[in-house]
Design a protein around this nucleic acid. Structure first.
Lengths: 326, 326
DNA sequence: TTGAAAGCGCTAACAC
DNA sequence: GTGTTAGCGCTTTCAA
C-alpha cells in the first residue's frame, strides 16, 4: 500500500528529486556515484514512477489503444499480436478494447482513449461513415485504421486489397467449374464488405458470368448471420453451386447451414471464404481460402502509428499488403 | 489539438475553477444559475477533464484491467463481455491485455496496470505458483482471478467446480459404455488443469475403473497441443474408447487428429470436452460438453472487484458457479 | 454558496 | 553536474 515517491528515493539517496528524475530518464549526465546511489535507492524502495504525474508534465504516454470490432475473430487476435510486438519493441504497451461492432461502445472507448491520453489508437471502425474519430483528432492523438477504411477522416490505413482478393477467389471457383456462385456479404457500412462485394462482381464479369441480385445475401460478419444467409441462398432453385463467404465467422455459420441441408463440400457445393480458419476443424483443406497477413498488418499499423506519435508529418498513407489464395 | 482546461471553462462561465469542479463532480450544491452557465461552457468548449490530473488528486481511476491468458479462447471473450457490462453499469471502463500464457508478458501487463494506476484487475493467471501479483498488492490494487486460482496470494476468485464437472463428464462417458477413457490434460501450472485431472481420477474411481498412467497426456490448452496429445493417445493399443479433453481449443486439435486417423465420433470413439464450442461447426451435437457460465463469471468477477475497489473489506471469497453437462 | 490557495508527483528551466 | 523553483490540471481545504 506504500506510496513511494521520487522524494523518498531522493531522500534515501541523498540527492534532489531532479537528480533522480535525470537518472531515470535519459537526462543530462549524472555523476556515476550518484547514479549508483539513486539506482540502489530505487531498487530498495521498489520505486516506480507515477505515470499520471509524469504525463502532466511531459504530455507523453506510452500506451497505445487498439479498438477492434470483434474480439472473437482470430483475424484481430493475430493482428493484435503483431501490433504488440512492434509496440513493445519501442517501449510502448498496448491495451485492447472490444466494440462488438457497436457504434456506442466504440465511441465510449474512443473517449477512454482520450481521457487516458493514449499516445495513439489503432482502430477497426464499426462503420465507415458513422464512426467518428473527431475526439481523437482534436487532441492530436493519431489514428491508424486496420482492415477497414474510414470515410469520415483521412487517416493512415493498413490492410489488403479486398477487391482483388475477392475477384481472385471468384476466378478460382469458376476454374473449378462453378457457374452459380452465391455471395454472403457483410455489413453495408464496413468497407471490407463493400470491397469484397465489388471484387465478387468483377470476378463474375471477368468470367463472363452475369451478376444476379438474388445470389447476394447480406450477413453481419458473425456466425449466426452466416448461417441465415446460407440458408437463404440454399433455398434458391436452381441451387448455387458455390458459396463465397466474406468473412471467417460467417463461414462457420454457412458450414453449419450446409450440414443442416445435408450438403457436403466440396462434393455437393464449393466453398470459398475470407480469412484464416486454421482454428477450426481442418476445414481449410476443402475450401478456397483467402488469407490475410494479419500479424504483419498489426505490426505495420503499429509502426506507422508510432511514427505519427513521434511527430512525423506525411500525407495519410494506405499500406496495402497482399492477401493470398490458399 | 486544443487543450481545454478547467480554467478555460471557468473563464467562459465567469466562475472559479473550483465551482466548475463542483458542478462536474457530485460536489456541494451550486446555485442553479451557475450550474447552467458552467454546463453551457463545458458544452461549448467540448471540455473533458484530464483524468491524469484528476487522479493525482483523488487517487481514483475508473479503469479496470482484464489480463487474460489467451484472447483467442472464446471462454475469455464471453467472460470479458460480462465484466464489461458490469463495469460500465458502474461507470468503469475495461481494458484488456493478452498474455498468451507467457509469464513475462503477464508481468509486463501487471506493471502497466500499476503504472496506469488501474482501479482493479481481473486476472486469469498463467501459473498458479509463478504468477506474482505482489506489485498490485503493494499498491493496494485489488485483484480477482477468474477461472484459475492463484497459490501465491489469497485473492477472490470466480469460477466453477472443475473437479466435480470433470468427474460428471467421466460418469457420463462410462454410462455410454466407455471403459478406456483417454484424458488430455492442460499445463501443470494451471489450477483448472490440475482440478480437471483430479476430477477425471475421481470419476474413474467412482465407476470402479482403474487409473492408467498411459491414458493421460498433457497438452498446452492450445489447438496443436490437443492434436499431438490425441495422436499419442490414439496410438495406444488397445485404443481408448473415449477421449476427454480438458479445454476447448485442444478439442479442435483432437478432432483434427481423429479425422487424420479416420475415426468418427461418436461412432468409433466418444468425445467429451470442457467449454463451449458453439463457435465451431456444430460439433456440440456429438460430444459430451461441459459448459461454463462464462458471461456470468465475468459479471460476478467485476462486481466483486468493484466492491473491493470501493474499499469493502472481507476475507478472500471464492465464488463457485455451476458448470453444466450438455 | 463561492473563491483563493495549496498540493498531488513529476520534470524542465534556471541558477549555481 | 546538481539543486531549487515553478507549474502541468485538477480537487479540496479553508476563508469569506
Amino acid at each position: 500500500m506504500s506510496r513511494i515517491t521520487i522524494k523518498d528515493v531522493a531522500g534515501l539517496a541523498g540527492v534532489s528529486p531532479a537528480t533522480v528524475s535525470r537518472v531515470l530518464n535519459h537526462g543530462p549526465t549524472v555523476a556515476e556515484e550518484l547514479r549508483v546511489r539513486v539506482l540502489d535507492a530505487v531498487g530498495r524502495l521498489g520505486y516506480r514512477p507515477n505515470s499520471q504525474a509524469r504525463f502532466l508534465r511531459t504530455r507523453a504516454t506510452t500506451v497505445l489503444g487498439v479498438i477492434i470490432s470483434d474480439i472473437t475473430n482470430p483475424f484481430f487476435t493475430s493482428m493484435v499480436r503483431g501490433a504488440e510486438d512492434a509496440a513493445s519493441k519501442a517501449g510502448y504497451s498496448v491495451v485492447l478494447a472490444n466494440t462488438d461492432e457497436d457504434l456506442g461502445k466504440e465511441q465510449r472507448y474512443i473517449e477512454v482513449a482520450v481521457a487516458e491520453n493514449m499516445a495513439g489508437v489503432i482502430l477497426s471502425p464499426a462503420s465507415t461513415s458513422r464512426t467518428s474519430i473527431a475526439l481523437l483528432s482534436e487532441r492530436g492523438i493519431p489514428v491508424v485504421t486496420v482492415d477497414r477504411r474510414l470515410q469520415t477522416a483521412k487517416v493512415d490505413r493498413v490492410g489488403v486489397n479486398n477487391v482483388r482478393a475477392a475477384q481472385e477467389a471468384v476466378l478460382r471457383l469458376v476454374d473449378q467449374g462453378c457457374r452459380r456462385i452465391g455471395f454472403i456479404a457483410g455489413p453495408a457500412e464496413v468497407t471490407t464488405s463493400v470491397d469484397r462485394l465489388a471484387g465478387y462482381k468483377h470476378g463474375l464479369k471477368a468470367s463472363g458470368l452475369a451478376y444476379r441480385n438474388e445470389l447476394v445475401v447480406r450477413g453481419d460478419y458473425r456466425i449466426e448471420g452466416g448461417r441465415a444467409a446460407a440458408h437463404a441462398l440454399l433455398a434458391l432453385r436452381p441451387r448455387p453451386d458455390a458459396l463465397f463467404v466474406s468473412n471467417n465467422l460467417m463461414t462457420l455459420g454457412a458450414a453449419t447451414a450446409l450440414r443442416e441441408h445435408g450438403l457436403g463440400y466440396p462434393g455437393d457445393i464449393k466453398l470459398a471464404a475470407f480469412d484464416d480458419m486454421s482454428w477450426t476443424l481442418g476445414l481449410s483443406d476443402e475450401i478456397t481460402l483467402i488469407s490475410q497477413p494479419t500479424y504483419e498488418i498489426g505490426r505495420q499499423a503499429a509502426e506507422l502509428l508510432l511514427r505519427r506519435v513521434a511527430g512525423e508529418q506525411f500525407p495519410a498513407r494506405h499500406v496495402v499488403l497482399s492477401a493470398s489464395l490458399a
